[in-house]
């Protein structure tokens, strides 16, 4: 069997479109990209002369900076547009913004949007390759890929691992992308959160769903905490932050039930004292800062693999 050398699509819209060999290709490429971050001159000419547009319609610090750094390390020319201070705040529709950008013929467009499916709309309109940097409560593929890279680095594999994902399951695109990726790669996923924040149909993805954090953590090789997304909660989901921490917050005591070499992850930004105790976030289990470093490498890999496609 010949090794896969390129992605089958020229877009990265979600993990749902990726086959296991494509996930492996991205992770292996990202592993090679990591070395560039250790050099004195942290830059390679691979995407010289390519234009990448970063369209961030929703607040984002780490994902936007991570993509920008990845683009710069590959020598791409980058432009950033945020919702505030652009034509978007003057009432332009996404489709019109996309057509305007298209006229400037960028090679790749990275988009973060509060509406699920926004990158898919762009993919239909634009000739450029589209990278989904998070769309509403739908998918956040590069986050799941960087999580997978971090797990693989620490555990040497994904298949057979017990992964507990805990927190606001309902609003989390990180959950969706991670569930798709981890189950596809043969990991056993348990999801845990308050009953009001469990989406319907989650079990149909092959996930064990529970409201008991102790049950979710028991024997886990990886514990992934999700942020409580106050900004997406337009109803009464939680009685109080204190009660949430008491029932679902990750503490050193709760971690005792996990595997002895458990790692703790968080996609950020963290709410200390809400979903995670500071002693855990800063403790020996935490690989949260590894995730940030791996984020740049994974995004370099994705941009490189998509830019190498025949974009005509």
């Amino acid at each position: 069997m010949t090794e896969l050398t390129r992605l089958r699509s020229r877009h990265l819209l979600g993990i749902t479109d990726l086959a296991p060999d494509e996930i492996e290709l991205i992770l292996n490429t990202a592993e090679a990209m990591k070395e560039i971050g250790t050099r004195t001159i942290k830059k390679v000419p691979a995407l010289r002369g390519r234009t990448v547009v970063n369209l961030f319609f929703e607040a984002s610090t780490r994902t936007r900076l991570s993509f920008e750094l990845a683009e710069k390390r590959l020598s791409a020319d980058t432009m950033g547009i945020t919702a505030v201070g652009s034509s978007v705040s003057k009432g332009e529709t996404l489709a019109d913004t996309a057509r305007t950008l298209e006229a400037m013929s960028p090679d790749l467009i990275v988009i973060r949007h509060a509406s699920s499916g926004a990158p898919h709309l762009l993919a239909r309109i634009c000739k450029a390759g589209i990278v989904n940097a998070g769309d509403g409560s739908h998918e956040h593929p590069t986050q799941a890929l960087l999580d997978a890279l971090t797990i693989r680095e620490r555990k040497g594999r994904l298949a057979g691992l017990k992964v507990a994902i805990i927190g606001d399951l309902l609003h989390s695109r990180v959950l969706r992308s991670n569930v798709l990726l981890l189950t596809r790669m043969g990991a056993e996923v348990r999801a845990c959160g308050p009953a009001t924040l469990i989406p319907q149909g989650l079990t149909s993805f092959g996930v064990h769903v529970t409201t008991s954090i102790d049950e979710a953590v028991t024997g886990a090789d990886v514990v992934m905490m999700l942020r409580v997304q106050h900004e997406r909660m337009h109803g009464l989901f939680l009685p109080s932050v204190r009660e949430y921490f008491t029932l679902f917050g990750l503490t050193p005591k709760r971690l005792e039930r996990a595997a002895s070499d458990v790692i703790v992850m968080h996609p950020g930004p963290m709410n200390r004292g809400v979903e995670i105790d500071s002693a855990v976030a800063d403790g020996p289990w935490s690989v949260i800062l590894d995730q940030v470093a791996n984020g740049v490498a994974v995004r370099m890999a994705v941009l490189y693999l998509l830019a190498g496609e025949d974009v005509t």
Binding site: T5, T29, E31, A32, E35, P45, A46, A301, G308
Partner: peptide, 25 residues
């Protein structure tokens, strides 16, 4: 040394496969 990222033909691989990036050390 892996020279994949320094090639001058990244876009010209419509026929042959794009080389797989390996680690430089």
């Amino acid at each position: 040394l892996d020279i994949t990222l320094y090639r001058d033909d990244l876009m010209k691989h419509q026929v042959g496969p794009q080389p797989i990036l390996r680690r430089t050390d």
